[in-house]
């Protein structure tokens, strides 16, 4: 139910929701508030049905998150330019690890939930020149084209005996060079042809009409603004 509501929101609302969520990670200034945020974020992801895919994608980053704990615990008070004493701070290490974990969690959720086309929709709906939205759309589209080219070139080369995943790191990097040559040539060629194609279809530079916000979107946007203001007031005014 919650998942359906979240996915059904207007692209502008979704993006504002993520901005609020992301900002809260930096506004929270103690371990307990971060823990509360982590628990509520996990609950939201579970209820929205995205938890499995988000945690699956996060798996690869876990070693980095775990490594951050001892690093911040033991080196948190140390700097190349000044020293504030030294020693270790277990809570500070935990706080920073949790913050990193939340940053990764929200970023992954953003990538999985907000589609590129919704980002473009949002850019088009604010008063920016239509070319800005078109340039972003083309950049996203080109990303897919390059990724497809990379995949097909990789397949063609491994089919001609190129081993990419064996040997030392240096050998593996060297093996990737034959992949880059055709990819670069293709990308330059694509860029030239894309300019031609753009000239042949100039309508993509026209401004698109944006839909008016619905009630649930308006309520959600007001909610986000209130939460942001309250959190900022609490963290920066009340606590200090």
């Amino acid at each position: 139910m919650l998942g359906k509501i979240a996915l059904d929101l207007d692209s502008r609302t979704k993006i504002l929701l993520f901005i609020t969520w992301f900002s809260m990670v930096f506004i929270c200034r103690n371990l307990y508030s971060l823990l509360t945020l982590f628990a509520s974020s996990t609950l939201i992801l579970i209820l929205s049905g995205s938890a499995f895919s988000v945690f699956k994608k996060m798996k690869i980053m876990l070693p980095l998150v775990l490594l951050s704990w001892p690093l911040w615990t033991f080196l948190g008070n140390w700097s190349l330019f000044h020293s504030t004493g030294g020693g270790f701070d277990l809570f500070f290490g935990l706080f920073m690890m949790l913050r990193l974990l939340l940053i990764i969690m929200i970023s992954v959720a953003f990538i999985l939930i907000v589609k590129p086309t919704e980002i473009i929709g949002t850019i088009n709906s604010v008063k920016l020149p239509p070319q800005v939205g078109a340039v972003f759309a083309l950049a996203f589209r080109n990303l897919y084209i390059t990724a497809e080219d990379y995949k097909s070139i990789k397949e063609a080369h491994t089919s001609r005996g190129l081993e990419l995943d064996k040997g030392s790191l240096v050998k593996r990097i060297r093996s990737h060079i034959p992949l880059l040559i055709p990819l670069i040539i293709k990308s330059i060629d694509n860029a030239e042809k894309l300019v031609l194609a753009l000239e042949l279809r100039p309508s993509i530079m026209n401004r698109r009409k944006s839909k008016p916000l619905r009630l649930q979107d308006t309520v959600m946007i007001i909610g986000c603004v209130i939460v942001l203001l309250f959190m900022a007031y609490y963290s920066f005014v009340m606590v200090s």
């Binding site: 590129p116 086309t117 084209i145 042809k193 894309l194 031609l196 194609a197 042949l200 993509i204």
Partner: peptide, 20 residues
């Protein structure tokens, strides 16, 4: 064009048609 892939500008099918 013969190299038709580059004439797709939208990210989704519907969006590409809307752009035209």
């Amino acid at each position: 064009l013969q190299n038709y892939e580059l004439q797709v500008f939208g990210l989704t099918v519907e969006e590409d048609l809307e752009l035209s």
